[in-house]
């Protein structure tokens, strides 16, 4: 099979997974008979306290907000340490960001919750810290991988530092930066589920409740939707990267 055919197949798969995600979120209550058959001992085999559509949206909202903050901070920091004024800070930044990644998110939640209360705020802090490393690393890698000859040409032709950044450095670094954002977002979709342990409303809520109440069906239901969300999002990023690659390398090469 040619690469083109594989890519076409992958694009169809996005629709499949997107459809499954919507179907499971909307239609979960209708699966009562299925889960009843699978877990006959459970009195309430489907999680119904909050609708899965509701959980899905608040999960997505938490991930989007934390990822936007991670990207803004991450790219900003990477821009700073790749300018002449900030080069000296690069090792420090890389170390600090790597340390953020070594904290287990549960530990951050456990420390943050008593300090700033329960709910979405401690979850946001944990997710932002946790999502930072891939963004910072990929942004630094992307920005430093731009061919120095190209940058020198841009400078020598008379582009201002801002023009060089906007029209040359960022567009050329974008594919690498996007790869980092993809990792960060995908990780955070999984991590956000844990945030339910401090009271944030996410797709992790049925999982946490299921675990504490020995209701395996709830755990499975939450896990299925989170998994589908992660896969669908990852595929959307794949599509975005392909688009980007095409716009840089033009059509003939693909």
């Amino acid at each position: 099979m040619s690469t083109q055919a594989i890519k076409a197949r992958a694009n169809q798969a996005i629709w499949l997974f997107l459809g499954l995600l919507v179907a499971f979120s909307v239609g979960m209550p209708h699966l009562e008979t299925v889960f009843h058959a699978l877990f006959p001992k459970l009195a309430r085999p489907v999680y119904l306290q909050t609708s899965f559509v509701d959980l899905l949206f608040s999960h997505i909202w938490l991930v989007v907000v934390s990822s936007v903050i991670s990207v803004l901070i991450g790219v900003g920091v990477a821009l700073f340490v790749t300018r002449p004024a900030g080069v000296a800070f690069r090792p420090l930044v890389e170390t600090v960001v790597a340390i953020c990644q070594t904290f287990p998110p549960v530990a951050v939640l456990a420390i943050a919750a008593p300090l700033i209360g329960m709910g979405s705020s401690p979850a946001l802090i944990a997710l932002v810290l946790y999502g930072l490393l891939p963004v910072v690393q990929s942004s630094i890698a992307g920005l430093t991988s731009v061919n120095p000859a190209v940058l020198e040409a841009a400078k020598g032709l008379g582009m201002s530092p801002f023009d060089r950044l906007r029209r040359v450095e960022l567009p050329l670094a974008l594919p690498v930066i996007l790869a980092g954002i993809r990792i960060s977002v995908t990780i955070n979709i999984g991590t956000a589920a844990i945030a339910s342990s401090v009271g944030a409303k996410t797709l992790g809520t049925p999982i946490i409740i299921g675990l504490s109440g020995f209701n395996t069906a709830y755990v499975i239901q939450g896990a299925i939707v989170v998994g589908l969300l992660a896969i669908t999002t990852d595929m959307l990023f794949e599509l975005l990267q392909q688009r980007l690659e095409r716009s840089v390398n033009n059509t003939e090469k693909n």
Partner: peptide, 12 residues
């Protein structure tokens, strides 16, 4: 005008 070795073109 400033010209350098061929790899100085903007690839994008």
């Amino acid at each position: 005008g400033y010209a350098i070795q061929s790899n100085g073109l903007f690839p994008h």
